[in-house]
Design a protein around this nucleic acid. Sequence first.
RNA 1: GUGAUUGUAGCUCAGUGGUUAGAGCGCCUGGUUGUGGCCCAGGAGGUCGGGGGUUCAAGUCCCCUCAUUCACCCCA
Length: 416
Amino acid sequence: MASNEFQPLQGMSDIQAPEVYLWRMMEERARAVFASYGYEEVRTPVLERLSVFQRSLGDTTDVVKKEMYSFTPSKHALAMRPEGTAGTIRHLAGRGEEGLGARVFYIAPMFRYERPQAGRKRQFHQVGVEATGEPNPLADAECIALQKNLLDAWGLAGARIQVSTRGEPSDRKPVAEGLRQALQPHVAALCEDCRRRIEENVLRVIDCKNEGCARVVDRIPSPLEFMGPAARDYLERVMQALSAMGIDVVVNPKLIRGLDYYVHTVWEISHAALGAQDALAGGGRYEIALGRKAVPGVGFAIGFERAIMALNACGIDGAQFAPPGGIWLVSLGEAALVENMKLARDLRARGIRCGMELDAKSMKAQMRKADRAGAEMVVIRGDEEIAKGTAVVKNMADGTQVELALENVLRDAQAG
RNA sequence: GUGAUUGUAGCUCAGUGGUUAGAGCGCCUGGUUGUGGCCCAGGAGGUCGGGGGUUCAAGUCCCCUCAUUCACCCCA
């Protein structure tokens, strides 16, 4: 069983029924919700030039530095996408004028070379949207509303939305400097990692899980206090719009998002049932420079694997979305086998799900198979029925059966 | 990259260094000349993750390796 050749690669998995029914439900409902907001689907390649990710995510981020599947087959270094925004913006930027003011969504696999753990795969799947255009707090609020809408459509309860801001690009230096100064007197109380982070990435100190660090962070000003009035005003207007729409969010100044492209609003959606990796979705406003153009936009991504863990915790699983069982044909004898092939063809041509055993098996075995397949109805034919042009139709739920003329079988099956 | 954890039948798991490695569920066949689920009987199915070592003897002990799961780092 555990022989390697039958196992998918580390951190990757085969998704089969019944779980795949849940995936399908999520994809279908996502498309419906996006359609209602006027978003169009975009399918960009899995492979991009490495530089697309270096420039948008930032080439000092961990994702770019050590988590990408990258290689250089010929002239350019390539990478499999670790997230969806960079490629989507690469695409929109190439559309020039019409790429601004675009609203698109994607449902696609992403790849990161990390050690797998709960809710973290090397190939994982995200549904995400991007709305480009000049910064507008209402656009950010609408984006969060859309995301919440989608989670509701899936039936997910208990999700918690936290919002913060990264401020304007010009706020970054003052925030970093301000935090460094504020932390300076408390260096001794910080964990080893955080002492390093003060220089490399101060913001990361803010969301350190270490208790000692958290106590220090509680005593120093939040990043927001080092930002200019424009940043705080922007956040205020996002919050007002959300509250007007009745969407429950909390501001958490300690919320930090790692990717470089974020400006202003950032948010994260977490769920208590998830464990250590409790964020199932994230989003934010960004500014991505590719070539000479800087594309402004706002977007979100939801991780399928993590959303599924949360849905399971809500008692929602794939079995609930299994397709109807349809009809099972039982054949007694060679002649019936061939006749049923023809009947199956006719039923399937009418869009009816229909199965049958192709090997000559006992009736008991065929009935058992029909039961396992979840068939709602069984059509039984032997030499007698074929001679008469009839079939015995059995209702599997209540066990009743009637003999019908063949054309009536087809008519009834189609009716319902 | 770091630290733990687990690996025995399709699945969930038993198995004090000592015969032909077991159970439950699932699967197949029969009990019913043409009737599923429940019940009964029988059956198939195992490189004990892989490789090396210790031993008269290894699923069991040691080393290496691969994989699982969880956590760190980081992220959805």
